[in-house]
């Protein structure tokens, strides 16, 4: 077992603290809107602080990743520890940009940040052991594949955050928390926009992954566990979009579908590669 206090760990702890503070401030800020009359002015003074804390967390994760990169000699592409840290960075970055540019989604921080904390708590249970970089990972398409995948997961996460608000608003006690937000129909529209973006990046991820697989293992598609899981995720997303376009699916059902797609993507990312014996695992 390696010493836990390797170079990247202090930065990791600090980054997680920043995300925890962002979560706390977001929840307190949203909670303050409770009890106001409909249409009354609501203070948004907490929002810059939330954005600042998330941004600080992202910067600290970058430093943590850089320290680890220097220590073990390669990027965060192989074991679960480094994949989780890398995702905490990229999910935070995309969410921070969305939070900054789209004020309508800001209350979703009370759903999105706890979701990120699932990753945060998970990474705290893992040892920061150095991983072995497989020879087939020296390929530029790996970067494209991973990069597109990060955007896909981030857009799914934001869609799920908004979908989470739609579902939370079903609880009468929580309705006042989100009174500054547009009606569910508008939130549903926004959430599905993110899922449409997710579809584009999911498609790009699959294409880049296929090119990489062709170079790395001499086949572009072999229905291994991770490929199949990713394809099912793409199919779910495509089917959900088609169903929503065609049928008048109740908003809360659409919200559940978005969260289901995100959960499936989550297990595809953080589950399949680590139980499957597929080449993706890196044992080649």
């Amino acid at each position: 077992m390696e010493d836990k206090m390797v170079a990247e760990m202090p930065w990791l702890y600090t980054a997680l603290t920043a995300y925890a503070l962002a979560t706390f401030v977001a929840i307190m800020g949203v909670a303050r809107t409770r009890g106001g009359a409909a249409g009354a002015a609501v203070s948004r003074s907490y929002e810059p602080l939330v954005l600042g804390l998330i941004t600080a967390g992202v910067v600290l994760f970058v430093i943590s990743l850089a320290e680890r990169w220097i220590r073990i000699g390669h990027g965060p592409f192989v074991n679960l520890f480094e994949l989780l840290v890398s995702q905490l960075f990229s999910l935070g970055l995309v969410y921070a940009v969305a939070y900054w540019r789209l004020p309508v989604i800001r209350p979703s921080a009370i759903v999105v940040m706890p979701m990120m904390w699932v990753l945060g708590l998970w990474v705290l249970t893992l040892e920061p052991v150095a991983s072995v970089y497989p020879p087939t990972y020296h390929n530029k398409w790996l970067w494209a594949h991973v990069g597109f995948g990060k955007f896909f997961l981030a857009f799914c996460l934001i869609g799920s955050g908004i979908a989470g608000i739609i579902l939370l608003r079903k609880l009468p006690r929580l309705v006042p928390l989100f009174r500054t937000l547009p009606p569910d129909e508008v939130l549903d529209h926004v959430a599905w926009r993110f899922m449409l973006l997710a579809l584009i990046f999911d498609s790009l991820m699959l294409i880049a992954g296929a090119v990489w697989a062709q170079d790395a293992w001499g086949r572009y598609w072999a229905w291994d566990a991770l490929e199949t899981s990713s394809f099912l995720n793409w199919l779910m997303l495509g089917a959900a979009i088609h169903a929503r376009l065609t049928y008048r699916i109740p908003v809360h059902v659409g919200a559940i579908a978005i969260i289901a797609i995100f959960v499936f993507a989550f297990f595809t990312y953080f589950g399949t590669p680590f139980y499957s014996e597929a080449a993706h695992k890196g044992v080649i």
Binding site: W223, A225, S229, F231, L235, H242
Partner: peptide, 20 residues
């Protein structure tokens, strides 16, 4: 039919899962 065939493809892919 699109949704039906997608579901069928999903089942086919699931059957191939890790055992193509």
């Amino acid at each position: 039919l699109t949704l039906l065939w997608m579901a069928l493809l999903g089942i086919g892919a699931a059957l191939s899962y890790d055992n193509p």
